[in-house]
């Protein structure tokens, strides 16, 4: 029998990925474990434990966690409501909630600057309603708000897809067996939407961890995350690509580890009873 296509077709991709993904990663590892003289050293990797770097790393982790939680809490109910509407094929409503994603990410961040600046839109609105001004610009809260807004569609979309896939009859069956709306959400929709929730959390948590430009624009240098530390190591006057590589490698390691821990807990929960 003739086979479809041939192995040769995979060639260009494989070559591309070796040159532009595998080798560059190798370079990071190489630089991370050498000093400027080219000798082996652990200093760069270990330097993540220095206070200068450990602090922003911990801050990134904490903030990413908060951002992920906010995105999840906002998008899970929205996904459920949207899935009800799309059953009648009102897909334009779903579209409407994804649409902001197509605005350039820098423009969206810029918009939050306009809103949060001390004399920006938020405080103007507060003024009109006779409320006291809030000074959010250049704070952690501003960075969290902006990042959560930017990554929100990446949480909403996979959860929505997972929820929309749930057979309506399964929900009817649960209702039929006596489950109230809350029980249906907790015992049926939530566990069945798990794959979507997992990918949503991954897609928000990972990029938040290495974010640096939002921190720059909304944090104004006052919010110094690990992404900023890495960026500084490469782009500032006293650039040190060995240190930068070491920090990048540590960041990668941390992300992989947190994902593994998260997957482990996730599996553990599936194991025993759902009650």
């Amino acid at each position: 029998m003739k086979k479809i296509g041939s192995k040769i077709l995979t060639g260009p991709y494989i070559i591309w990925m070796i040159i532009f993904t595998v080798i560059p990663l190798g370079l990071i590892v190489y630089y991370a474990f050498t000093n400027s003289g080219g000798a082996f050293t652990l200093d760069n990797v270990v330097s993540i434990a220095d206070t200068v770097n450990a602090k922003p790393l911990w801050l990134s982790f904490k903030m990413s966690f908060e951002i992920t939680v906010i995105c999840f809490l906002l998008s899970f109910p929205l996904a459920i409501i949207l899935s009800k509407y799309s059953k009648n094929k009102n897909s334009i409503i779903v579209m409407a909630f994804i649409l902001p994603m197509w605005m350039n990410f820098m423009l969206r961040t810029l918009a939050w600057r306009l809103i949060l600046l001390n004399n920006g839109f938020l405080n103007r609105a507060f003024e009109i309603f006779g409320l006291n001004s809030v000074y959010l610009m250049n704070t952690k809260a501003a960075v969290i708000l902006g990042t959560a807004y930017d990554y929100f569609p990446f949480m909403l979309l996979p959860i929505y897809n997972a929820v929309a896939k749930i057979d309506e009859d399964v929900i009817s069956a649960a209702r039929d067996l006596g489950a109230s709306g809350v029980v249906v959400i907790r015992r049926i929709i939530f566990p069945l939407a798990m794959p979507g929730i997992i990918s949503g959390i991954t897609m928000v948590f990972v990029p938040s961890m290495s974010e640096f430009v939002i921190a720059d624009m909304l944090g104004g240098g006052k919010v110094y995350m690990i992404g900023n530390a890495i960026e500084q190591a490469f782009n500032s006057g006293y650039a040190d690509i060995h240190l930068g590589s070491g920090l990048s490698l540590s960041l990668m390691g941390l992300i992989v580890i947190s994902m593994l821990i998260y997957k482990f807990f996730d599996k553990g929960e599936e194991g025993h009873g759902i009650w």
Partner: peptide, 26 residues
């Protein structure tokens, strides 16, 4: 193959950018 395809997804953009920069500048 699918595993390799996912590397740049799981790698944060910053690491993808930096690793390519190291390659290019070298």
């Amino acid at each position: 193959m699918i595993g390799i395809a996912q590397i740049p997804l799981l790698n944060s953009d910053i690491v993808t950018g930096i690793s390519l920069m190291l390659l290019f500048t070298r």
